[in-house]
């Protein structure tokens, strides 16, 4: 017979596993929306005060690695409020966003999901992604990187309150970033 303490700790471990599973499920659903070009539904996952940020990364020596990424207030590939993200989605919906018409073919693979912090209301979550894209005849892009999100609990699901995207590239090896991460 497990004693009280052991029972409690195994309960909390099960709760943490369920929570981790919910977070993963949330990310898989999100990825499915993006790959199906269901951008408006994707946008609805973001909180009104959300910030969406992909810094510029620079090759630096070990000694100066703390300056590898740019910070908010500096230049970035993405530095959007939710309203600005909405403008990107609206652009895609016009039928005249040529970089995405014909649309690129994408697949978002989400892995290594780790809840770093959970205070009951908000969670800090890290994950890795592989965004594979082909376009037109032979254009092929592969972006691998990590995301650090702040998720807010919202009913049965979550809202993305903050997303930071870190690419494993300095010079971006593609002609544009017309997709979402």
């Amino acid at each position: 017979m497990p004693n009280d303490n052991e029972a409690r700790s195994s309960d909390s471990r099960i709760a943490a596993m369920l929570r981790d599973r919910e977070v993963e499920r949330f990310y898989y659903d999100e990825a499915a929306l993006l790959d199906a070009h269901r951008y408006e539904e994707w946008l609805a996952l973001f909180a009104d005060d959300a910030h969406y940020f992909m810094p510029i990364r620079r090759t630096r020596t070990q000694r100066e690695l703390d300056k590898e990424f740019t910070r908010p207030g500096e230049m970035a590939f993405f530095d959007d409020t939710r309203e600005q993200l909405a403008a990107r989605v609206a652009k895609l919906k016009t039928g005249r966003a040529w970089a995405e018409d014909p649309p690129s073919r994408t697949r978002h693979l989400i892995t290594n999901v780790r809840v770093i912090r959970d205070d009951g209301r908000t969670l800090e979550v890290e994950c890795n992604f592989h965004l594979y894209r082909t376009r037109l005849h032979s254009e092929e892009t592969s972006w691998i990187g990590s995301r650090r999100d702040v998720l807010r609990r919202a009913g049965e699901s979550f809202q993305i309150a903050d997303r930071k995207i870190f690419l494993e590239q300095t010079v971006l090896l593609s002609r544009n970033l017309s997709n979402f991460f």
Binding site: M54, A76, F78, Q84, A99, L172, S174, N176, L177
Partner: peptide, 18 residues
């Protein structure tokens, strides 16, 4: 500057294609 030009720029995205 971040939103208009550059790789994710709402303008420049479509330039590169052409």
């Amino acid at each position: 500057a971040n939103r208009i030009f550059g790789a994710a720029g709402l303008l420049e995205q479509d330039d590169g294609e052409n």
